[in-house]
Design a protein around this nucleic acid. Structure first.
Length: 107
DNA sequence: GTTATGACTCGTA
DNA sequence: ATACGAGCCATAA
């Protein structure tokens, strides 16, 4: 099997967290990982989103790296930035102003 | 089994 | 600001 049972559930939790991120706000991989569970790391958050984009109704574009940096390479990164700007997420150069639009679990 | 790679983060230079 | 290394973990070769 390419995906173990444990990983599949972990990935499901991660996607579920991402799905709760409201429009106009963003979260970091670390934030998603922490919200998804204590056994989840930032790398796993990114891994779970890889391939999930486009395949599911997932606001993958609201997930950025620490400090509001866009981690997604190539055209996908440009699209992410475009989508975020379309939602009213403030940018500072090539970074998101994470301090002003960072999502907290406490809605 | 090992090695390399990547949507991670942090510390140090 | 950029560059590198260490720790981290799943996949691919």
């Amino acid at each position: 099997m390419a995906e173990s049972e444990a990983w599949r559930e972990k990935a499901a939790r991660i996607r579920s967290v991402v799905r709760r991120v409201p429009r106009g706000q963003v979260a970091t991989y670390g934030d998603v990982a922490e919200a998804a569970g204590e056994d989840v790391t930032a790398r796993q958050a990114g891994r779970a989103l890889k391939g999930a984009g486009g395949a599911a109704r997932l606001p993958w574009h609201r997930i950025v790296a620490a400090g509001g940096r866009i981690a997604l390479p190539g055209d996908a990164g440009l699209e992410q930035r475009m989508r975020l700007e379309a939602e009213g997420v403030p940018f500072s150069g090539r970074r998101v102003r994470i301090e002003t639009c960072r999502w907290k679990q406490a809605d």
